[in-house]
Nucleic acid binder design. Structure first.
Length: 257
DNA sequence: ATGGTGGCCCGGCCA
């Protein structure tokens, strides 16, 4: 099975590219972030035409997440599901082919002194609590999406340039480590130890062509999936060409679990 | 150079 995640920065703007990418890469499950759509606007029919079921959680202008699957889509849940706000449609989960799959869009902390930074840390804690309450780390579970955290200094183009900034701060990295401590593996990093492989590049200043990126889009999996993973890739080709998202898709291949 | 680009959708906000 092939699991993928992609922050598309508006599915309305990106649908043709998403359709082309599905056709080319043939993932079994695709998690989307930043659809920027209300549920009524989500193009379920376009995905159905390609053989995929889909579940969306969105409010319109900002955020919005989805799970798109051709191996089944059951037990869909939106948000934290316990009455706690998920800060504007940032989490949707479903059972896909025997795997519990979560599409997450972690809040951007903006700056270390921002109230949004505290929201981001709390959100990551809430995600850990959700997993602890609803999942078993001995079972196949995927948590993937845009975490807005670069796990370590290999994941940013210039650590010195990020001093005092979000995405790299110790509390954010510790919150991500705590999440993984529940029983998740950053499987791309397990298979690729080299620095300088990124999933996001700012639109501004020619960042992509200058290699100024960050790896903030992660596929976290439980150990039973991690040991069965044969490949983990970031498709930076998808960042090229006309009207790209500022994020590249990430996908992993799992043989058996 | 406190900028830049792109998406929302038309004045800023957000990333």
């Amino acid at each position: 099975m092939r699991f993928a995640t992609w922050n598309v920065n508006s599915l309305t703007a990106r649908l043709p590219r998403v359709e082309a990418w599905l056709e080319e890469v043939q993932p079994d499950v695709l998690c989307l972030q930043e659809t920027k759509q209300a549920d009524a606007a989500f193009p379920h029919e376009a995905f159905a035409a390609m053989g995929y079921e889909s579940a969306h959680h969105g409010e319109g202008r900002w955020n919005g997440v989805a799970v798109v699957s051709r191996v089944g889509l059951e037990r869909v849940t939106r948000g934290f599901g316990d009455g706690h706000d998920d800060a504007g449609a940032r989490l949707v989960a479903a059972d896909c082919g025997g795997v519990r799959v979560h599409s997450v869009y972690v809040p951007n902390g903006r700056s270390l002194d921002s109230e949004h930074y505290a929201v981001k840390l709390a959100w990551l804690g809430g995600l850990r609590d959700l997993l602890a309450a609803t999942c078993d780390p001995s079972q196949p579970v995927v948590v993937c999406g845009d975490f807005n955290v670069a796990p370590d200094d290999r994941d940013v183009w210039d650590p010195a340039a990020f001093e005092g900034m979000t995405h790299v701060s110790t509390p954010e990295r510790e919150a991500l480590e705590s999440l993984c401590g529940w029983g998740l593996v950053d499987v791309f990093r397990r298979l690729h130890v080299e620095p300088g492989v990124y999933s996001w590049w700012d639109y501004r200043g020619g960042s992509f062509h200058r290699g100024h990126g960050m790896r903030i889009d992660l596929v976290l999996v439980t150990e039973s999936l991690a040991v069965a993973t044969t490949a983990a890739e970031i498709d930076r080709e998808a960042r090229k060409g006309p009207r790209p998202s500022d994020h590249a898709p990430v996908y992993v291949d799992v043989t058996r679990f």
